[in-house]
Design a binder for these strands. Sequence first.
DNA 1: AAACAATCTAGTCAGTGTCAAGTTTATATG
DNA 2: CATATAAACTTGACACTGACTAGATTGTTT
Lengths: 204, 204
Amino acid sequence: MKKKSYHHGDLAAALLNAAEAELTENGIERFSLRAVAKRAGVSHGAPAHHFSDVKGLLTALAAKGYERLLDQQSKREAEKDGDARAKLVASGLGYLEFAMANPQLFHLMFNSSIPDRDDERFFNVALSVFDRLVDNTQAVNGKSPYSDEASMVDLMASWSLVHGLAELIVSGRAERPLNLSQLSQEDREAVLSAILGRVNQSVE
Amino acid sequence: MKKKSYHHGDLAAALLNAAEAELTENGIERFSLRAVAKRAGVSHGAPAHHFSDVKGLLTALAAKGYERLLDQQSKREAEKDGDARAKLVASGLGYLEFAMANPQLFHLMFNSSIPDRDDERFFNVALSVFDRLVDNTQAVNGKSPYSDEASMVDLMASWSLVHGLAELIVSGRAERPLNLSQLSQEDREAVLSAILGRVNQSVE
DNA sequence: AAACAATCTAGTCAGTGTCAAGTTTATATG
DNA sequence: CATATAAACTTGACACTGACTAGATTGTTT
């Protein structure tokens, strides 16, 4: 890390860190590129040399978020390898865990029309999250969602439920019905797993 | 409707209409209070006399959106009275229908932290949507979500699935897997109903 | 050592929401 | 009916925003 030279050394990364800090502190609504530059100790025009505009910066940040989301899901899945359905639920728990730990980032990634979906890196990493769901769905019901319509319906139901629940939690709307903030982590996970388990139940 | 007097007559309503038009045309990201005032044919300072600030205006608009959402759901439910579960699915279809018909408004209502949730009118009308779900859930499984934990789990699963699916559709992420835009309305509703039906299935 | 490209600063511009002061109109009061 | 008061609206100012430009500084290549 350089001391105080004219050139920063790794300003792009520093800006991303500053951007995430600003995002978590102020939320997307009051996000300011100039504040990010100031936090990184650099003039307000500097970011333009690393990110085309504020949309570019936030797209890169969102892509980083997707990577961490993937990690979180992988970690959860790894604990439960064996039963395919348990793995699917674990993957969903990882999704929820990420959302609860990074509400503002989650909001940026999904709830805003800010990130540029055509950005290559963003597109690919978002696709990876989807592919993981494709694999897990196929492992559960034995048919590829791409070739089997009913399997795709299952996939969309899983996806919708997990994502919707994350939205309701992050936005605070799930708090009154579920009281999540007052539960122990164990109880909280039990409740969330129960909800996730209500979709695509196998009828035996 | 007055012609061109200094006083507008019903500027509050005119501003809400202008705001919705601006919202649908430009999206929440490029929403501008001054543009709304200009569209309503009034100076940029005028809105302050009817809405405390831009947040106040958008909160009122979001509340109006909730009312229309309720209407849409009522209409759908009315077609299927009888079977409780069919009614629940119909209610969900109304939810999706509203989202698809008013994507930007839907986004304002749910995906932004703009509306003031403590605003009385907003709070009440949002509660009405929730209460409807409470009633429908109770009708399906016979137990009140407020007193029965498993019933609340069912409710949250229904809510999450419907809302999540709406999010995925509105944001465009459901398009690639489902091809909704290329289907006839009949086929589209069949697919959506199938997905909605994958939650809280009765195991007989 | 010199040329060149990349990086960063500093100034400017149009646009934003909000506030304060002043103007016009409607309404209530005598 | 006249007049005081309140409400509705305009106008101008302010601090802030993101983007653009020109110029200063530094790293790299030849």
